[in-house]
Design a protein around this nucleic acid. Structure first.
Length: 283
DNA sequence: GCCCAGGAGTGTG
DNA sequence: CACACTCATGGG
């Protein structure tokens, strides 16, 4: 099944490339392939048009992609608003096709519990391991992300032999403390209420709660702060200190679109680091 | 081998 | 409130 969508602006690499979602893979022809729900999705830009291939396809495929790429976000307006910050403006102009992604709530929670204190290649590997071992096959070589119910039935020892380290225990505990109905209730909460509830879960601190709020529950005011963001905030804004302090600064400066601001800052910081490393290793 | 990673939990001052 | 320490492991 094949169809076209118009989602603008959109740069697949900027959006799917690193850090937000962990299961998209770039192809040599510029397309991106990954699972969405129980569909295998292939995305490719043809000029301004997004070409979508869905297997097995069906009536829900179009909505899956529109949801995932948050097609309703007025990204131009968000960029106009954030671009008024002179510090942020250059970063925004380099990432015009970046969109925040919407991930399934449970998938976001489980993924960012696994993501604690690991680098992105390893996170992608852990998420892939979870899908391979406990998800259901949806196409050759790709499994769906295992549901909360599926993970709750996995023996603790099985999770512990996945190479997740101390994260295995958290994943196991969370899968028993929550059911899918409770996740549905979380959807009705405001950001601050949701954040409080998420932090009550084992293995979920402020940073994971903010990632899950932003990418899983679509709370655009969330502003996750990891080690990269800490460095960037010190360098760009001279802001240092506790998570609470940095977060308060971000809320005041970026307001309801703090999540987008975070992505512009985060991506720029990583590009900076990558170019530094490349320049160094060439010599 | 070394350093670091989209941190969290717990204890202490 | 702020630090300090520990946790389990693998990518670069």
């Amino acid at each position: 099944m094949k169809f076209n969508l118009r989602i603008s602006p959109l740069d697949l690499g900027q959006t799917l490339g690193c850090g937000q979602a962990f299961r998209w893979r770039p192809q040599s022809d510029g397309a991106w392939v990954g699972p969405l729900g129980n569909q295998l999705i292939r995305l490719k830009m043809k000029g301004q048009v997004l070409e979508v291939e869905a297997v097995p396809g069906g009536s829900g495929a179009r909505q899956l992609v529109l949801n995932h790429l948050r097609a309703d976000d007025d990204v131009r307006d968000i960029q106009r608003s954030l671009g008024r910050d002179p510090v942020l403006a250059p970063g925004v102009s380099q990432l015009k096709g970046l969109r925040i992604v919407k991930i399934d709530e449970w998938e976001a929670l489980a993924s960012f519990i696994l993501a604690t204190y690991a680098n992105i290649p390893r996170i992608m590997k852990m998420v892939e391991t979870l899908a391979t071992k406990f998800g259901e096959p949806i196409a050759e070589g790709i499994n769906s992300f295992p549901t909360l119910d599926m993970i709750s039935e996995v023996r603790k020892s099985a999770l512990e032999s996945c190479g997740f380290g101390y994260r295995a225990k958290y994943l196991h505990e969370v899968s028993h403390k929550l059911d899918s109905e409770q996740i549905g209730e979380l959807r009705t909460l405001s950001y601050s209420e949701l954040r409080r509830k998420l932090i009550e879960l084992p293995g979920v601190g402020e940073k994971v709660a903010d990632c899950v709020s932003l990418f899983g529950f679509g709370k655009l005011e969330a502003f996750p702060i990891d080690v990269w963001m800490e460095r960037a905030m010190a360098r760009l804004y001279g802001q240092k200190g506790s998570y609470a302090r940095l977060r308060e600064f971000a809320q005041g400066r970026f307001g309801r679109y703090a999540g987008y601001a975070q992505e512009y800052i985060y991506h720029n910081e990583r590009v900076r680091a990558r170019n530094g490393v490349c320049a160094f290793t060439k010599n």
